[in-house]
């Protein structure tokens, strides 16, 4: 029989798990935000390589996005986690320092960022392609350096085209942080599972965590819509 649900388990202080849940939630947001930013950097590099790079660079970028799109995120995260920590330890050893323990946050951000980068590359590539070439040629005709063309013309002009795709990627980033629970990062999903297992109140805790995720998605949705409206000022209505 179902007993009455004991909401005091969600209290913020010690017998309750609310504080631990909120800390895990913060951790998830940090991981998602860090990974998303890293993904944007990788995505810009990847898109530049695909559009302006030489043959070899272009092929390498293609292989990277192929790998990211064809292999499950969970497997990729496992791979990047082990390869990343191994590489860093070898690097430190070759520099004559002893192996360091990478703290969980940067490892998680790295792993999420590498996955996000693959999708961001595709989003940015499409967006840069949508910028009328005449605008870029005009900037070049003014004698701007390639970097300045990118900063002053290409990036601002492609932003409205990239925003819908990047909004999707933010949603995916927040949800992908949950996968880190499988590798053992103590973010919201793992903390929730621990709390639920300790108290045997599975529905209470998983639904509470689900509401936190949902709140994050819905609130960032509002923000992203506002950003999109702002970026599209002066452009014809979306097709």
């Amino acid at each position: 029989m179902i007993e009455a649900i004991d909401f005091s388990l969600l209290a913020l202080t010690s017998p309750g798990w609310g504080g631990a849940l909120l800390a895990g939630f913060l951790r998830s947001v940090e991981l998602a935000a860090g990974g998303y930013l890293l993904g944007i950097v990788i995505g810009l590099l990847g898109a530049t390589a695909k559009i302006y790079g030489g043959r070899i660079l272009r092929d390498i970028a293609e292989l990277y996005t192929l790998l990211i799109r064809a292999v499950p995120e969970l497997v990729l995260m496992l791979l990047f986690y082990y390869v990343g920590t191994d590489l860093l330890n070898t690097l430190m050893a070759s520099l004559g320092r002893e192996g360091i323990d990478i703290d969980g946050l940067s490892a998680g951000i790295l792993v999420i960022g590498l996955v996000q980068g693959g999708y961001a590359t595709e989003v940015f590539r499409g967006a840069i392609r949508a910028v009328p070439p005449g605008q870029i040629e005009a900037a070049q005709a003014f004698g701007m350096s390639p970097f300045r063309v990118l900063r002053r013309v290409t990036l601002p002009a492609m932003a409205p085209h990239a925003l819908p795709g990047m909004a999707n990627l933010w949603m995916i980033a927040t949800k992908d942080t949950a996968l880190l629970a499988v590798i053992g990062f103590s973010e919201l999903t793992l903390v929730t599972k621990q709390a639920a297992a300790a108290t045997r109140e599975y529905f209470l805790f998983f639904i509470a965590a689900g509401l936190l995720y949902l709140a994050l998605t819905l609130i960032s949705n509002l923000g992203l819509r506002w950003l999109e409206r702002r970026a599209r000022r002066g452009l014809p209505a979306a097709a």
């Binding site: 949603m171 949800k175 639920a196 599975y202």
Partner: peptide, 21 residues
């Protein structure tokens, strides 16, 4: 909205542990 707004892993654990119990 709910399914698309929450992680699949969380849904899986909710259904497996929650419904199972």
């Amino acid at each position: 909205t709910v399914i698309r707004g929450t992680p699949l892993l969380l849904q899986l654990w909710l259904i497996y542990y929650g419904l199972g119990a």
